[in-house]
Amino acid sequence: MMNQPGSSRVVGFVVDVFCTGMIEVANELNVPTYVFYTYNAAPLGFNLYLEKLRVDQNQDVIDLGSSKGEMVVPSFVTPLPMQAFPAGVPDT
């Protein structure tokens, strides 16, 4: 079907990281989805690093906040003191 002047078609969905449920809608419509991460690179790198610790190294990231010392996070300039570790980091 030819596009008519003034008509448009959906070529993809761009969703915020908090609206990832829309990915299912896009899949039903057979349209690609792009997730827009609204934070800067440091928190994204932190989340990815925690996921790597949990999955690749089988480490319980919930218990890290009660540890002593510092954690070297690749996306941070300086090491993160364990006392500053967010309490209740979700184990996703």
Rank of each mutant, 00 (worst) to 15 (best):
L50K: 10
T33C: 08
Q59S: 09
V11M: 07
R9L: 06
F13V: 00
R54D: 07
M22R: 03
I23P: 00
G45P: 10
N3Y: 02
A87S: 10
V55Y: 10
Q59Y: 09
V31Y: 01
N30R: 11
A84Y: 04
G45K: 09
I62G: 00
D91A: 06
G65E: 13
G88V: 12
D91P: 00
F13T: 02
S66T: 12
T78H: 08
Y34A: 01
L29K: 12
V15L: 09
Y49P: 06
K68N: 12
V10G: 03
Q59N: 03
T92P: 08
V35P: 00
T92E: 14
V35S: 00
G21E: 11
F18D: 03
D60T: 08
G12M: 02
F85H: 12
P74I: 05
N47P: 00
N3W: 01
N47T: 03
V55D: 10
A84C: 08
S66Q: 12
V10A: 13
E51H: 14
S8Q: 14
S66P: 04
M2L: 03
P79I: 01
V55Q: 13
G21N: 12
L29N: 04
L64G: 10
M82K: 10
S75V: 05
A41S: 14
A41P: 04
F18P: 00
F18A: 04
